[in-house]
Design a binder for these strands. Structure first.
Lengths: 357, 357
DNA sequence: CTGAAAGCGCTTACAG
DNA sequence: CTGAAAGCGCTTACAG
């Protein structure tokens, strides 16, 4: 597999190498300097013999005419979290970003930051001229941004982050996710809904609660909330407490707002026994895994890949100097109606007399 | 952040640019051509002003003296599977590879292959001189290798694959994983062990069974096996069948050979009720997630990151022409002793009379 | 033993 | 309007 160069194309057609360069130029003004027929022959030959420009040569050139920014090589910084909860959604965002970059004939370089010393990798890559911009996922905070700024390269943060400064970022619209769950159940006729949240203060959780509460107020929906550690979903003792809470709550629907909780909870409900959806409607929440989809629960699906893809588009705009507003852009989630929700029975769950209707 | 070049260093010290190049050369023979003191001054200055060689210039040069292979840019091909089971272990291997590459000042380019047309990306990257070698993870088969060969670049397959041809590859030693589970339980005094396997014919599963059976035969251990779909772990009906099977099996220990099954099974056992480890010992199996570790079950842990790291080492050897034997290299797993295994009670589980002892 | 010079493949300013 | 030439930063063969 020897490399095909512009010189070889030129030689084949009896033209100068610069004629070939002109024909292949990205710059439309420069292309016009060539007779249309000559250009056509050059492009045809280039295509036929499989010419692909040598990236290193192009990059080296940019050092000379630095004013025209390029968008060939993007780095994705994965700031490791203490848990590995984030791996799946981050991987999904990365996949989406890679897909979008491939369309632009650009590549994605993966860099994992585990310790502060790993930032040296970032600075080294920058100095080596390897990167045109950064996508950043994981445990992003002001300190990370402080490391990123001196690279002089544009960046976009993907997913939840802890920055207080205004930074270009892209995320799922968790507020809307929460609102849609409430609105879907309200439309079916539910008036009292139970919510099971993670006890950990994830950002996505608090955004979702924001949406849930605003939609509940707007729709006259009563809510009951319970915050549980993820382990509770599988612990028998916690499971019993959870069922007791649910039965006395008078709720006709349950939203399990932790990723992949629905299957375990569904199992728990069946043992109560509470039939889904006859006795109680169940809405699942899934972040970058597909079990809820496989079981076709009614569910909130988060388009993490779309966040990655849109992140690339945003970064591209910034590189080429488009006037991009700082702050967070949001991608709407999807509410998929499966079998696990329906209108509530007129005869509600066993309900304590103290609960007003 | 303007770039620091060899010329600038040379200018500062009143030397020629080639003297600087000699001092910084990787080639020890070339370094010796310079007086030690001159070399020291050059290195000191380079360090002080943060010189980092421009990667594109280095790469372009290699086009000229192509005989000396480089190992700067490695591509990781993620061949998407139909399910997303593989995402977590693949991400773990990728993280391990990135860490090892960073030590070598090399970078990892992520490419996702979802459709056959995506192989164009691979060929384009190759032609563009962007890659020195490939790491390949996911759904790798002979067809993938056939796409890879014409790139002319060395490759190493990480993790399970379906190639019939002999290819350089690195994997977890699943056979040993199975053997260790049996040997651990045998050492504690268990003589009859139950195994819960995925119904899907994963390669890791069959390797593990191989190890389990050879160790069982060697240690005089009786085994009972059940193959279940992953959903069985959470379905109440299947759960009851599973408990019945377990109780009548006469087993004093259970190995749940599906990733992250242990928690659900443990819950199921508690409802039976079967206390762990008093009534039955439980060994968990975990692939690139940490729930079993968090709960400190006795468990088999798979060092996926180590597979990635060793994969880089192997690829590096191949690039530099070391005589590497084809076929699979294996990384031993770890058996971690947690709270969930102990010696069996002398009074065994309820056991049907038809089972010989 | 030392240092000026060639050239990797490309892009673009500049001379004809 | 066209094409020869300069040069990005580096590595290495080659002339002094």
């Amino acid at each position: 597999l020897s490399r095909v160069t512009q010189r070889q194309i030129a030689h084949q057609l009896g033209l100068s190498q610069s004629a070939v360069a002109f024909a292949l130029s990205d710059n439309p003004a420069r292309r016009k300097q060539l007779p249309a027929e000559t250009r056509r022959r050059i492009l045809e030959t280039a295509e036929r013999i499989g010419y692909v420009p040598h990236r290193a040569a192009q990059r080296l050139n940019q050092e000379r005419f630095g004013h025209s920014r390029s968008f060939d090589q993007v780095g994705i910084l994965y700031l490791a979290t203490t848990s590995d909860y984030m791996d799946l959604p981050c991987h999904a965002m990365m996949s989406g970003a890679e897909h979008e970059l491939a369309n632009l004939h650009a590549t994605l370089t993966f860099i994992r930051i585990t310790a502060p010393a790993d930032w040296r990798k970032v600075h080294r890559l920058t100095q080596a001229g390897m990167v045109d911009g950064w996508l950043v996922v994981g445990a992003v905070d002001d300190q990370a941004v402080a490391q990123l700024r001196p690279t002089g390269l544009p960046f976009v943060i993907l997913g939840d982050h802890h920055c207080t400064a205004l930074v270009p970022s892209l995320n799922i619209d968790h507020v809307t996710a929460g609102r849609w769950v409430v609105e879907h159940l309200a439309r079916l006729g539910h008036r009292r809904i139970a919510f099971l949240y993670s006890a950990l203060p994830f950002l996505y959780r608090d955004r979702m609660i924001e949406g849930i509460q605003s939609a509940s107020v707007a729709g006259g929906i009563q809510t009951v909330e319970k915050y549980v550690p993820s382990s509770a979903v599988t612990s028998p003792a916690e499971g019993r407490l959870l069922l007791d809470w649910l039965k006395t709550s008078g709720a006709t629907a349950l939203f399990t707002a932790g990723s992949s909780w629905a299957t375990s909870i569904w199992r728990l409900l069946q043992e109560a026994p509470l039939r889904v959806p006859e006795d109680i409607s169940l809405v699942a929440y899934e972040c970058a895994s597909t079990t809820a989809a496989a079981q076709n629960f009614t569910r909130v699906e988060l388009p993490m890949a779309e966040v990655g893809s849109q992140g690339v588009v945003l970064l591209h705009k910034i590189v080429f100097g488009a006037d991009v507003a700082l702050g967070e852009k949001n991608i709407p989630p999807t509410l998929v109606e499966g079998w696990s929700t329906r209108a509530p029975q007129t005869q509600a769950l066993e309900r304590p007399s103290c609960v007003p209707d």
